[in-house]
């Protein structure tokens, strides 16, 4: 019974994660500008990875494998947002025609 619940929850998490990853890939190819693309890619790098690896953790239970998966999640959550931040910062610093890409937000 518990094994079945584990399997169903894990499969749900993994499928949601795969959907998120697919959306992020779609966004990366759909958007044209760096910052927009970064927004789409960051979604897959954080939420999608969390969902997929979390599903695997739930499936494998309390083992050494799940601890390694947890470490992988921590590593990716530490590094991926930082690299996106650096890319965005570089774009802001170097793009001279930044205004063309930024729309004014009306409150």
């Amino acid at each position: 019974m518990i094994a079945w619940i584990q399997f169903i929850v894990g499969a749900l998490l993994i499928s949601v994660g795969v959907v998120v990853l697919a959306l992020s890939v779609f966004g990366v190819y759909r958007f044209n500008y760096v910052l927009n693309r970064m927004h789409a890619a960051a979604m897959g790098d954080t939420l999608g990875i969390l969902m997929v690896l979390g599903g695997l953790i739930v499936m494998s239970g309390f083992t050494a494998v799940s601890f390694k998966l947890l470490l992988t999640i921590v590593m990716l959550w530490l590094t991926s947002p930082v690299s996106s931040h650096l890319i965005g910062r570089l774009e802001i610093h170097t793009n001279e025609k930044l205004d063309r890409h930024l729309k004014e937000v009306k409150h």
Binding site: V82, L86, R89, H93
Partner: peptide, 10 residues
Amino acid sequence: KYEPHNDVIL
């Protein structure tokens, strides 16, 4: 010139 200088997050 364009390198991030002392980026605290990084």
